[in-house]
Amino acid sequence: MNSETDRKGTGGAVEKADLHTVAETAQRLRCSVPTVRRLMKSGELAVTRIGHGRGLPRIPDVAITAYLKRHTTCCTTS
């Protein structure tokens, strides 16, 4: 990896635009904030924590997409 790339934070790390707050995730999933927190706690929805201590929870876009894939059924007509 290039040290210049690492300094800019683009060396394979998740971009800021790819991380969502709990409220943004609730809006995208069309559910409540407490529901998103339950999904995070149960491990159904992957979470990344930013900062010191417990950190601020952020949900990666790929985690939301994966959750939707697992819990979405497709209706097909014959």
Rank of each mutant, 00 (worst) to 15 (best):
M1Q: 11
N2E: 13
N2T: 12
S3G: 00
T5E: 14
T5P: 00
T5D: 12
R7G: 12
R7F: 09
K8G: 12
K8M: 10
K8E: 10
G9L: 06
G9V: 09
G9W: 08
T10D: 03
T10N: 11
G11H: 08
G12W: 01
G12T: 01
A17C: 03
D18S: 12
D18T: 00
L19E: 02
L19Y: 07
T21C: 14
T21M: 08
V22P: 03
A23Q: 15
E24L: 06
E24S: 11
A26C: 13
A26E: 12
A26R: 06
Q27L: 07
Q27N: 11
R28Q: 10
R28K: 13
R28G: 00
L29Y: 05
L29E: 07
R30Y: 01
S32Y: 04
S32F: 07
S32P: 07
S32L: 09
S32E: 14
S32T: 15
P34K: 14
P34W: 12
T35V: 15
T35R: 15
T35A: 12
T35C: 03
V36Q: 10
R37Q: 15
R37F: 03
R38Q: 14
L39H: 13
M40Q: 13
K41W: 08
S42C: 05
E44M: 03
A46Q: 12
A46I: 02
V47H: 02
T48E: 15
I50C: 05
I50M: 13
G51A: 04
G51T: 04
G51M: 02
G51P: 05
H52V: 08
H52L: 09
R54V: 07
L56T: 15
P57S: 11
P57M: 03
P57V: 07
R58C: 04
R58I: 10
P60F: 05
P60I: 04
D61N: 07
V62N: 02
A63N: 02
A63I: 03
I64Q: 03
I64S: 01
T65R: 11
Y67F: 15
L68S: 08
L68N: 01
L68M: 14
K69H: 11
R70I: 00
H71K: 05
H71I: 00
T72L: 14
T72Y: 02
T72I: 02
T72E: 01
C74M: 09
C74Y: 10
T76R: 09
T76N: 05
T77D: 02
S78V: 11
S78D: 14
